[in-house]
Structures are given as C-alpha cells and as structure tokens.
Amino acid sequence: MNVQFKKGVLDLCVLAMLKDSDRYGYELASTLSETIMISDGTVYPLLRKLASDGLVASYLQESQSGPPRKYYSLTAMGKIRLQELLDDWNAFTASVNKIVGGKSA
C-alpha cells in the first residue's frame, strides 16, 4: 500500500482502536504493523503527537506477565476528533468509490 495512504489514515486507525478499550503501545504497534504494514516504530511518535494534541491520555499499569505497560485512552477531544476523521474518511471513500467503482455508483 502507498506510504502516503498509510500516513493519512494512521491517526484514524489509532483513535479508532482506542474507541472501545484502552490499549498499550506495543499492542497498537503490533496490530497496526500487521494489518497495514507499517513499521512498529512509527506508532510511538504518532501516539506522542496525539497525546500532545490532547487527543489521547496515557497511564502506566502493571501486568501479570512482563513489564508494566503504558496504556493509552481516548480523551473527550479524541472522541470528537475520531468522529470528524471517520466522517471525512467515509465521505472520501464514498466519493472515490463513485469514481473508481464507476458502474456501481
């Protein structure tokens, strides 16, 4: 998949993954790297940026197996941003589909 494509939707993916439950960095990184083929390392700068924008918050939590984990959760602002991004995404894919899908639209 195109690099620019991935960068554009990475925010959306991370916010969407945090919508239902808090997740830790490693989990986000490995899930995203498997599904959209990005390197694990790109997720951490993104999380940091989202945190500095106030869209996500983080806390440390001990784990039964292994080291303590830094969990990320969606803030109220993050939820609003997620909705905006989702709306944009849906509108965008719908209009692109109209063009590339041609006959189906």
Binding site: G25, S39, D40, T42, R69
Partner: peptide, 26 residues
C-alpha cells in the same frame, strides 16, 4: 518498554528491532 514486552513474549531483540524500523527513521 516495547523491547521488554517483546522479550517477555519470547521474541528476540534483533527481530523486535527490525520490526521497529531504523532508529534514524523513527
């Protein structure tokens, strides 16, 4: 922390590093 979690899951350090992407890139 990323390395530590990976190690605790039985992965080896160089695999984890490779999946992270180069330090320069990050």
């Amino acid at each position: 922390n990323h390395f530590d979690i990976g190690i605790s899951e039985g992965k080896n350090e160089s695999d984890i590093a490779a999946k992270l992407g180069s330090p320069e890139e990050v």
